[in-house]
Design a protein around this nucleic acid. Sequence first.
DNA 1: AATGAATGAGTGTTCATTCAT
DNA 2: TATGAATGAACACTCATTCAT
Lengths: 218, 218, 218, 218
Amino acid sequence: MSASPRTRPVASPPVRSLRRDAAQNRVRLLKAAEEVFAKSGLSASVDEVARVAGVGMGTLYRRFPTKDALIRELVVDLTKQILGIARQAQEVPDGAGLESFLFATADLMAANRGCLARLWDSRDADDVKDECRTVIAGLLADAKAHGRFRPEAEIGDIDLLFWSLRGVLRATQGLSASGSRRHIAVMIAGWRPSPDPLPEPPLSPEQTERIRRGSPSS
Amino acid sequence: MSASPRTRPVASPPVRSLRRDAAQNRVRLLKAAEEVFAKSGLSASVDEVARVAGVGMGTLYRRFPTKDALIRELVVDLTKQILGIARQAQEVPDGAGLESFLFATADLMAANRGCLARLWDSRDADDVKDECRTVIAGLLADAKAHGRFRPEAEIGDIDLLFWSLRGVLRATQGLSASGSRRHIAVMIAGWRPSPDPLPEPPLSPEQTERIRRGSPSS
Amino acid sequence: MSASPRTRPVASPPVRSLRRDAAQNRVRLLKAAEEVFAKSGLSASVDEVARVAGVGMGTLYRRFPTKDALIRELVVDLTKQILGIARQAQEVPDGAGLESFLFATADLMAANRGCLARLWDSRDADDVKDECRTVIAGLLADAKAHGRFRPEAEIGDIDLLFWSLRGVLRATQGLSASGSRRHIAVMIAGWRPSPDPLPEPPLSPEQTERIRRGSPSS
Amino acid sequence: MSASPRTRPVASPPVRSLRRDAAQNRVRLLKAAEEVFAKSGLSASVDEVARVAGVGMGTLYRRFPTKDALIRELVVDLTKQILGIARQAQEVPDGAGLESFLFATADLMAANRGCLARLWDSRDADDVKDECRTVIAGLLADAKAHGRFRPEAEIGDIDLLFWSLRGVLRATQGLSASGSRRHIAVMIAGWRPSPDPLPEPPLSPEQTERIRRGSPSS
DNA sequence: AATGAATGAGTGTTCATTCAT
DNA sequence: TATGAATGAACACTCATTCAT
């Protein structure tokens, strides 16, 4: 809090930093949005968000031009955290990175249910998601190389896995993350190498892409 | 089913077809609702449903007293079909009934995405769902007895599986059922008996019940 | 009920008589309308009226071109009955005709509350009402001549009295006619000749007329 | 009230007049509602009220959560004014308070016809109405004690009187208050002590209560 | 910069009236 | 002719967004 060496010099020009209270309001609004959307879904009113944040409507709309932009910001934040987790998982040895990534992400999502509905099927934070995807692809390759995942597993299967996880999290709203952890555990078991091949082919990359690039639904 | 003498000749018109029109409209409305809700979610407007069905607002409200009742009807119809599938699955030998039930249900749900959001977390058609659950519990016991499912599997895990399936179906809107079939295949593989125990405990029956009896969310 | 001399010959052409069942439906509808409107006000739906009458909507609209016409018919019927009472009151001796007319009319209205809201301020049955007014004017003159009513009483004061009576009947819906009878009694007492003149002038005939000819309100 | 030092100079604008606008709109809405309901009845649409007030629908609903609440506010306002009049009437000597109360109330109601339909048969402002009733009972007792009202007069008869007054006011919409004043004058004359007893008994308190506590009708 | 009042298009629903059967 | 299903304009009310203060 003191003027430590880390503090960015006041005059730094490239990103015009928000004034202290403005930034505070921004954070407050994001927290309130997460809370409100987690409780009542994305159809909750912006008035409710502003009320919980303790700011006026005008302030909300000064920080975020539309309700959609507010949600998008939640999505971007969450995506960035997931990317962080994925990168940490790269350090895990013996091809177990993917698994630890999945469990950690499930826990993170359980604590950030507000914007899950928009997490994987909107064009928000596409660059971050692309990077995330690259890292995950590496984790998957590593897992397969170490014999922890079936060789048939493709990156699109991780999409499937996340979509299914979202379904579990949506249903277990208000409960602990144990449901989603159990779900992840079963899915990982399903992806372990096995003499029985999967009877169903994977989604084609085109299909997956169409979904990932899809417009945000209601 | 055969052309029995009782079958009225196709061309006879003047019999009392008033009801037939009404029934036609009913079906048209349900189809339109399924289509519209599948595309735009349950928050789609009833005007849109009526427009797609090609009828006036009043007709919709003559058949279904509220928008909710319309959705409920979709849910009830689908639940009944699922129960039918479950019963057929009871005939499948060697403990494979559960698996064929899961694949068939995934296909059915893929063709009826409109009301999935209400399928498992509303109190609609509770009696049918309860019966469904009983049949499924039998299928699961059978599968476990034949060594096709882990002994740790509980009925609540089937809930988890359906919630995850809903997530996949929601994400793959507009696509074929292949994604959901692949997901089911992986999950079944995950439930196959294995020396590695699942690291996570199941949801308690109380938790599952709380979700199943929950109020319809947005 | 027998073919008495008074019975109009069946073949009489000038008014084409409705077929028996049609006339029955007409009566049933009027009774149902009276009942429904008395219970729920004139804003009750025509569906309800048809339902209570036990006929279809089409039948209702065949007999009465609009809801308004149905109400008007109730008004006309009631007005005719009031005219009948007024004429009978002409036979009462000693200037007491007006008073007996008022009590009798109050009772009649209490039993026909359905259309009271339209009774005195619409243009329905204007000819009958005009005749009614003439007879009442005679009763009033008679009452004044016999010293039973103040000489200051004018025909417009009878309008006032009926309007006030309607207010009482509206308020005492569901109760007996005793409230309205008491009200009439007090008003008659107020109109008895007295040394104290009324401090307020009567409504001008123009004002009264404007109300009587007013458009039907909601 | 005088130009005290505290009075802020008229021209000072920047003080915090947000609330002033809101209050202005509130008053404008109440005036518009009164006007619209007086002209078209309580079934007039809220759009019409908003239009006449010159504000958007949202503003109306910001001030009053439902149409009913708007009407209720009119009722409450009017009831409070009536209570004020009743209290002033307590100062009138010689038992004439009730009469001056009745005339003043008739004038007030004539200027506030919009919500009369709800004034006496809803549970709005019940506490104010109860107090009003107590004061009126005192006025009536005083009038009887001074020989200005028949001893048979009961508080329920004042209800009757007000119901009848409402009928007159409803009918004389668009006219001056002279009709209602004349009506009050006649009723007061009718309640003057007289050797002729009223031929009808009063409403029982139970009956009156049932009406006063009745649900709002259409 | 912050506030919260104002806006108005949109929602679910009703109901007088029409019309196919 | 009788039926009741179909119609659609109208209603009460909501909410994302704008704007005066």
